[in-house]
């Protein structure tokens, strides 16, 4: 890790002023925001970036806490991941979000990592994470994963970069149609989670979100709970804990008289963004809530997958995970 200056502003305005107004040549890293530091410090230790200045957000009181807003909740970006997992309201009404937060890393990391940081974390692709591989994501010319060791990489939405977005929380938030409120020099804006992330083909390949260099997530808004809409988050890992997902499913189902009347599904770790297989969601409606249907819906969700040389297994794995999520919703009281 190289030397940097640490600034600890106490207001959003100060923080935004300390961040660069435009991306510089190597991706706008003259100053970077830090909150829990669980991702950023690993990035700095591997010397992927060497910012001159870190802007610590911990002093900004507006960014913390949970407050109720109508029937929904507003979660401060500095909320710890562990607090998201533990909040009784979230556990009751936004179950998939609590489960996703609880599945993150280890207790130590959940106690330190923040909600905003989880949403803004950088990819885990081992080429990106190696300072010895000047890959596309870091301003190089090639995505080494495409023709290389890609068992953890994207099966949907890849090209020219094939990273997967590693967040557990983002798919769960997208399931609930949550949005983020941001602050920047240009003012404030509200973005749906689905608008926050961008595919590598659609914008600057060195970034995963549409956030500007001086744009900070202030909070996340969870809309009012939807009665009868049962949700869960299921994650497959090589190691059953403290491991990023091979694939993950945030699933919500409303069923009446044994039939599915509403289905929403957001997949994690299969694409550079949280991946919502809309056709599968639509086809599910009217189907019986039973194993044969789950398998059909899961198969539809996997349509269009484009596996690389070593990640073809992610197709049956994700399909199986979707079936498990349906089973869990029907059999367990979630």
């Amino acid at each position: 890790m190289e030397r940097f200056e640490l600034e600890i502003p106490t207001t959003v305005t100060e923080a935004v002023d300390l961040l660069p107004a435009s991306w510089d040549e190597d991706g706008g890293r003259e100053a970077m925001p830090i909150a829990g530091g669980q991702d950023l410090l690993t990035v700095l230790k591997e010397e992927l970036y060497a910012p001159e200045r870190l802007v610590h957000l911990k002093g900004i009181s507006d960014f913390g806490g949970i407050r109720e807003s109508g029937k929904g909740l507003v979660l401060g970006a500095l909320l710890k991941v562990a607090s998201v997992a533990a909040d009784p309201r979230i556990r009751l009404h936004w179950r998939a979000l609590a489960e996703a937060a609880e599945s993150v890393a280890s207790p130590q990391i959940r106690n330190q990592a923040t909600l905003g940081g989880n949403l803004c974390q950088r990819p885990r692709c081992w080429y990106f994470r190696s300072s010895d591989a000047p890959c596309l994501k870091k301003g190089g010319y090639e995505c080494y994963a495409y023709g290389g060791k890609n068992k953890y990489n994207a099966i949907f939405g890849g090209g020219p970069s094939y990273i997967v977005h590693p967040s557990d929380i983002a798919p769960a938030l997208q399931l609930f149609r949550a949005s983020v409120k941001t602050q920047s020099g240009g003012g404030s804006r509200e973005l749906a989670i689905s608008e926050l992330y961008t595919l590598p083909a659609d914008s600057d390949v060195t970034r995963e979100t549409v956030l500007g260099p001086d744009e900070l997530i202030e909070s996340v808004s969870l809309p009012a709970p939807e009665p009868g809409f049962k949700t869960t988050y299921v994650k497959a890992q090589e190691r059953g804990s403290f491991d990023f997902a091979l694939s993950a499913v945030a699933l919500g189902v409303r069923a009446q008289g044994g039939k599915i009347t509403e289905c929403r599904m957001v997949l994690g770790s299969v694409a550079p963004v949280p991946w919502q297989p809309e056709r599968a969601e639509q086809e599910a409606i009217g189907m019986k809530d039973e194993p044969e249907s789950w398998a059909k819906i899961a198969a539809v969700a996997m349509e269009g997958a484009e596996p690389l040389s070593e990640n073809g297994y992610k197709v049956p794995l994700t399909k199986g995970l979707i079936e498990k999520a349906f089973k869990r919703l029907r059999e367990e009281d979630v």
Partner: peptide, 29 residues
């Protein structure tokens, strides 16, 4: 179940010289 050194033979790189991608069992396993 977990442990394996992963090299990229074309690039000449060790892809998991750390304890994140080189996985050993933890208490939950």
């Amino acid at each position: 179940l977990l442990e394996e050194r992963v090299l990229d033979p074309e690039l000449g790189l060790n892809l998991n010289p750390n304890m994140e991608d080189y996985k050993i069992p933890g208490s939950m396993q």
